[in-house]
Every structure is written in structure tokens, then in C-alpha cells.
Nucleic acid binder design. Sequence first.
DNA 1: AAAAAATACTTACACTGGAAACATGGAGGC
DNA 2: GCCTCCATGTTTCCAGTGTAAGTATTTTTT
Lengths: 228, 228
Amino acid sequence: MLKENGKKYHHGDLRATLIAAGLEMLEESGLEKLSLRAIAARVGVSHTAPKNHFDGLKGLLTAMAIIGFERHAAEMQRGVEDAPPGKARLHAAADGYVRFALENPELFKLMFSSPLLDSADPALIDAGEASYGVLRNVAHGLDWEKADEPGAPFRTEWMLWSLVHGHAMLLIDHKLTRREDGTPYFAMTDLMPDFGYRDRVDPNDVSTETSVEAALRQKSRYGWLSSD
Amino acid sequence: MLKENGKKYHHGDLRATLIAAGLEMLEESGLEKLSLRAIAARVGVSHTAPKNHFDGLKGLLTAMAIIGFERHAAEMQRGVEDAPPGKARLHAAADGYVRFALENPELFKLMFSSPLLDSADPALIDAGEASYGVLRNVAHGLDWEKADEPGAPFRTEWMLWSLVHGHAMLLIDHKLTRREDGTPYFAMTDLMPDFGYRDRVDPNDVSTETSVEAALRQKSRYGWLSSD
DNA sequence: AAAAAATACTTACACTGGAAACATGGAGGC
DNA sequence: GCCTCCATGTTTCCAGTGTAAGTATTTTTT
């Protein structure tokens, strides 16, 4: 019933506890030093116990990345909802994207470290798409020179995503100088041309979609691929 | 003199051979599966032999990343020199940046995986700055709404770098759909607003530099930091 | 020729993730 | 109440990793 150390043989909610401990240790010691054995030890369980809940280390990391994408989406969505409709929402989403990356650098790197994750996990793909969807919604309001050229709206989505993701990555890797307090010198707004904004654009309206765009949308799941 | 297997005790040029073998195996099997022992085995040498030429695995990976930055710079520079002065050089450099990343995805990831590298290595920093310098030279010709706002030219450099780097990263991580033949759907030109271009801008002309920009330049070494 | 330095090897250690066999305890059927 | 089933966690073992210490060999210098 009770083991000599007072702990029960069955943990109760080992799966959630392992994920939480993993997320803690991830930001504490970095992705490189994270090990299955260390996480299990912190929880007070043998290093093979996680096998019952995850498919090895890769499975645990994947579960952690899913939480990451959910928080990432929430961080952006919160800003979007607090901002008035229009261009302010574009800026809120973009800044939220970078803010999350700066506040959770190791988790952010994990989320985009495909070789360590089970890229085929449907839950991971869904979480990633949901996160990307927030950015996608504001990108569809963007008005610029190439907003009506062939391949739009992917052209617009991917331009915005590349800009935001690149800035986040370069900041995390310490390739871009920051201020004394660690904040970036430029907000995403400062690095964006003064795009126009079309209000009330429905990203799911496919009535004007060309055949090429439709094929792209089917195939790409809005930019996310299910496997490498 | 000769060992029983016919090989000499001294290799001759072990350092260069290890780097070459590491670069081969990197693109063959990926960064995750790369090990010091495997590289040494391919060269036909004991797994501790590299210790005489590199500071452990981190040292070897750093040497490989330096080669990577040199090739990266060369790939961009080649395109720049073949293009006529002006905006064409911007496009050539940007496309070269992405092309290198797509042709050497594992090496590119290694170059920006700071925890695996010796970020303080002066040779690594120099190589990284030289590579960034190619992009920086064309960025200084860019003319856009914010080319004269506070913080320029860093504002312009970092905007361009973020856009290009983000697109390369997302393509490598298979987050953006590609064409059947593996090439991206959009060239960097397609993802850039129609920037104007000012010919004959000298990026090293500091005569009009503000004090803030000067401080940034001193501190950042043009965006590259020597340590994490 | 002798001494010194560079280079590579052998051995050993503390880690890692994973597989296999075993122990425990809760849940549902009788 | 009892008993079996099975989810859960443990123990033990294995192959593989990077690194350090001490040793052997070759080259270079003195």
C-alpha cells in the first residue's frame, strides 16, 4: 500500500506531472540537457515509468510541444482580442508571437525542432495549425502590393510568418542585439512596412479562390505539413 | 612505422579529414545522429583522437559551422556579383541565402544551433559576421517607409534578415509547402514588398550616423554577439 | 643521438534511451 | 468477499554517447 518512503506505488496523474516537470526543467536547464531520466527522477519515479504514458522521450517532448503551441496561440489570441479590429490586431498578433518566444525560448525552440518530435502526431499538427491560424487570420486583412498577385493569400500569410518567425528565431539565438533589459530594440511594427488593412476579410471565404490556391490549401493544410 | 593493417600511425591531416567526414555525415544522417565516435570511425581513427585537434565534439561542430558560414557567404556573394548593381543584387543575396539553406539544411541548422557550438570562438564569430555582411551590404540600399526613422540602418538590416531567415527556417522545418520538385512556391522576391533601391550607398559611411546607431554598432558588431 | 613535443591509442567512467521481465495495486466480474 | 485482468511502475540489462587519464608511437627539435 505505502512504500517505505511514504509514496504510493501508483502516482495518480503521472502523465500530466511528467509534462509539467519537463516544461519546468526545459526552461531551467535548456533543451540539450533535458533527459528522460532527469525528468523521471524529479517526479520521483523510475526512468522507464514514462513508457506507459509516452512513446519514449520523443513522445514526452511532443506532448510538451503541444502545450507550447497552445500557450503560443493563447498569447497571440489574447492580444488580438484586446485590440480594436483592424491593423492593431495584426500588430498584437505579431508582437505576441515574438513575446512568447522570448519568454519561453527553450520551449519555442523545441516546438520547431522537428527531429526531436513526432511530427506525425495529429495532436501536434492540430495544435500547430491552431497557433498558425491566429496569425493567418490577421494576415488575411493585409493589403499590400502583392495581395492580389497569383498565389495569394499564401503569399501574404507566408511573408508575414517568415518575418515574425525569423525575428523571433534570431532574437532567441542571440544574433540580434537587445536592450539592456533584454527587450528587443524593435517591435514587429518597426520592422514592418506600413501595410494597409482591409477590414472584415474572411480567411475561409473561398469564393474568389483560384484553382491553384485551392490545390495549395488542400495540400498544405494552411502551411502545416503532417510529416517530414 | 606501419601498423599491421597497413595504415600509418599518424594520419597526416586528421583535422581537415574529420571536418570533411563530419560534413558528409551531417547531411547524410542529420544533426541528431551525428556523434564524435561515428565520425572518428569513418576516418578510421580512435574516438579520442579528435581531442588533439578540437575541444571535444563542440569544437568539431564549431569548425564545421565555420565552413558552413564561409560557403553560405560565398553562395550569396556569387549571386550578388553576377547581378547588375541595384535591386537585382538584393534579390540575388536573398535567394542565395535561402538556396544555401535548402541545399544544406542540416548544416544550416547547425550554424544557428548555438548550444551545440562554441559561441565565443572568434573564428566562428568572424565567419558569421562575414556571411551577414553580404546581406547587410545589399540591405543598406533598401528604400522604404522606415529607412530614415530612428534606429536605421539596423531597422532595415534586421527587417530583411528576419524575413529571409524566417523563410529559410520554415522551409527547412517543412512548415511551408513546397512544389513537387522540392523547390519553394515563392522566391524571396515574391515575399518582399516592392522596396525602392538607393544605389551607391556605402554601409560603412558613418558620417550621418546618430549616436544611438553608433552605440548599437559598437556593441552589436553589426548584429552578431560574441557570447550567449 | 638524445630529448621534447605532437599525435594517436587503450582503458575507464558517468551518462543517455530503450527493451524485457517482474512486481504491485486498482477495477470489474462472479 | 474473492479473484482475475490489466494498467502502472520497478528492476535489470544492453548498446551507445562524450570525456578524462594514462600510455604508446612518431615526428620535431635540440
